[in-house]
């Protein structure tokens, strides 16, 4: 019995000291927020990405590994704006973790920090996969990333107050590097201004808004509805009247519809990483924008 008590004591001590020294556990719904948390938290955070760049963030299941991660997370970073409405509520309910429930400091919604585009005037399922709060794919404008980074660093300092000064310092450093990089991308992307594009899923309004691209058509009939053959033909007809320079899709989208447009309309099909990990070059947030701008410029040649 004595031995058992000793063991119990040492195990609980181990757990207690372990948790005191451990990094802040962050569960990021999408890889871009995981990457941002790594930039702003460095060694202070232990980040787990709930999804990867090849997954459609609308269509994830509350799978066992995610429930386990939500159980011990100190901070949850998601896009919000109902992007994760299909799986996050279950995760939160099954987690038994009060720290990350909506409204708590441990629940961070990135979309709340930026101005949203494409807020639907009419809420109807017949319109497809629309989000009442506006288009949630906010990550492809570096100015949005800057705004979210500012909010997130403050949140990190709030949740992990003992390291507040370090988070502040890291944010300062990141903001400087990010600002310089943003200038560079904007200088590089000058030739993209006013260029007409076709998108496969309406996932790029913030990119278009940033670079001045003109979206003339979408391959999905309605958001989230797979492109049909007849709709592709319509788009092709439209392109004859209103030509576009390229058709773009996210890494997780099927390649076939944009390939079809490429073959029939003779415009380049461009795969964009869409988020961190979507291409070999998009290793972090800087790589994501480097690669995105490069791929778009490459299609102009």
């Amino acid at each position: 019995m004595n031995k058992f008590l000793k063991l119990l004591l040492s195990v609980s001590l181990l757990i207690a000291t372990g948790s005191a020294n451990a990094a802040l556990k962050v569960l990021a719904c999408e890889p871009e927020w995981g990457a941002l948390a790594r930039e702003l938290g460095g060694e202070l955070v232990d980040v787990y990405d709930a999804t990867n760049a090849l997954q459609d963030p609308h269509r994830i299941e509350a799978k066992p590994s995610l429930i386990a991660r939500a159980r011990s997370a100190n901070l949850l970073i998601c896009t919000g704006a109902e992007l994760e409405v299909g799986w996050l509520p279950i995760l939160l309910r099954q987690s038994g973790n009060s720290a990350i429930q909506p409204g708590k400091p441990g629940n961070f919604e990135a979309a709340a920090w930026v101005r949203k585009l494409e807020i639907p005037a009419r809420l109807d399922r017949a319109e497809g996969d629309i989000h009442p709060g506006g288009n949630p794919h906010i990550q492809l404008n570096p100015h949005n990333i800057a705004l979210v980074a500012d909010g997130l660093s403050k949140r990190l300092a709030e949740v992990d107050a003992s390291h507040a000064a370090q988070y502040q310092q890291r944010q300062k450093d990141f903001a400087l590097r990010w600002q310089a990089a943003t200038k560079r991308w904007e200088a590089q992307a000058v030739p993209l201004k006013g260029v007409s594009i076709v998108v496969q899923h309406r996932g790029f309004p913030y990119l278009s808004d940033w670079l001045g691209l003109k979206e003339v058509a979408a391959l999905e009939v309605k958001p989230g509805v797979e492109p049909s053959g007849s709709h592709l033909n319509e788009v092709l007809e439209q392109l004859k009247r209103q030509p576009a320079r390229m058709v773009i899709r996210a890494a997780y989208n099927s390649e076939r519809p944009s390939q079809w447009i490429h073959e029939h309309a003779g415009i380049p099909a461009v795969m964009l990483p869409f988020t961190v990990g979507g291409s070999e070059q998009a290793k972090d947030l800087f790589g994501l924008f480097d690669d995105t701008v490069n791929r778009l410029l490459g299609a102009l040649k």
């Binding site: 920090w113 101005r115 100015h143 800057a146 705004l147 943003t182 200038k183 904007e186 200088a187 000058v190």
Partner: peptide, 24 residues
């Protein structure tokens, strides 16, 4: 010059976004 104009424009836009947020 074009690069400079771009960066100025971006700055303007950034302050615009902040203003928009305030407005929101």
């Amino acid at each position: 010059y074009e690069a400079r104009i771009q960066s100025l424009e971006a700055k303007l836009k950034e302050t615009g976004v902040v203003a928009d947020r305030a407005e929101e």
